[in-house]
Design a protein around this nucleic acid. Structure first.
Length: 277
DNA sequence: GTCCAGGCATCTA
DNA sequence: TAGATGCATGGA
């Protein structure tokens, strides 16, 4: 396969970022990654640390989508110093929080309840394949807009393997359409107000809301608490906190980049199966 | 066959 | 406010 334009990408690991459970549609083929930044196709690879090679899409778009402007060195300075957190950092160095479209992010995480990452991918791909818009130069369709989902019936979504999540996704789409609400227009809201708006949608509780705050609205202090983060916390603190309480504690404790800390801990625990001693 | 997964909505005390 | 339970599906 022919090469493309080269660009600098310091402190960035493309594979780890794409495989860290943020997006669920990336395809690797012959060493090239096919990604959709919303409706914009990106085809790229990382021939060596510190650089990217682009076959489709602009370097500007890649910098934006993969948040290459986040000050990763400064962010690492805020990481906890315990050995488990250090191992998570070293094991996933170069992982960045992707800037996702809000609806696509919310919809995929609404379907994530009690599902493994591989399953979320299956559902996301099925929804894109059946109901999404084709994009020229892409391997997968764009995620269908709320209007498209809202017009479906629950059986059509269950046929994508969603199970009980079908009603949640349908409810969220219909609520947004009914209220004429565009998630992208909420970007200027303060985090607390934004969280409240998100949690008012069917299928969106504290965990999914924090995923959307972190992965779509760039609230880098938001901490999604899933089963892995819960296990890590129990192993470290040896006492029980509710998930929302744990999220608030982590944001206070780890500061403006608490969401980054969370993502490294999550990815480390999930991929190695190891917990703090 | 059994267990578990990037939870949420609902009910009960 | 806190804790318990049902909910569907697919991979390990």
């Amino acid at each position: 396969m022919a090469g493309g334009r080269s660009m600098a990408a310091g402190d960035f690991d493309l594979r780890v970022t794409l495989e860290s459970g943020q997006i669920f549609h990336a395809i690797e083929e012959d060493g090239w990654w096919w990604v959709l930044a919303g409706r914009e196709p990106l085809v790229l690879r990382q021939p060596a640390p510190g650089s990217l090679e682009m076959r489709t899409g602009s370097p500007r778009l890649a910098r934006r989508y993969f948040s290459l402007d986040h000050p990763l060195g400064e962010i690492y300075e805020t990481f906890p110093r315990d050995s488990y957190s250090r191992a998570a950092l070293e094991g996933s160095r170069g992982l960045r929080i992707i800037r996702q479209p809000a609806w696509e992010c919310l919809a995929t995480f609404v379907t994530s309840s009690m599902k493994q990452v591989a399953h979320i991918r299956l559902m996301s791909m099925a929804i894109r394949q059946r109901f999404g818009d084709p994009v020229s130069g892409a391997r997968v369709n764009a995620y269908p807009a709320p209007e498209r989902i809202a017009a479906l019936d629950e059986a059509a979504l269950r046929a994508c393997g969603l199970g009980f999540r079908a009603g949640h996704l349908l409810g969220a789409a219909r609520a947004l359409v009914r209220d004429g609400k565009d998630l992208e227009s909420l970007r200027s809201l303060p985090t607390a107000g934004l969280r409240a708006r998100l949690e008012a949608l069917p299928g969106v509780g504290p965990k999914v809301a924090n995923c959307v705050l972190l992965f779509a609205y760039e609230r880098l202090d938001a901490v999604p608490v899933d089963v892995w983060i819960g296990r890590i916390a129990r192993a470290m603190r040896r006492r029980k906190l509710s998930a929302p309480a744990l999220a608030r504690f982590a944001t206070r404790r780890f500061g403006p980049y608490a969401g980054y800390v969370q993502q490294y801990l999550f990815h480390h625990a999930r991929t190695t199966g190891r917990l703090p001693a």
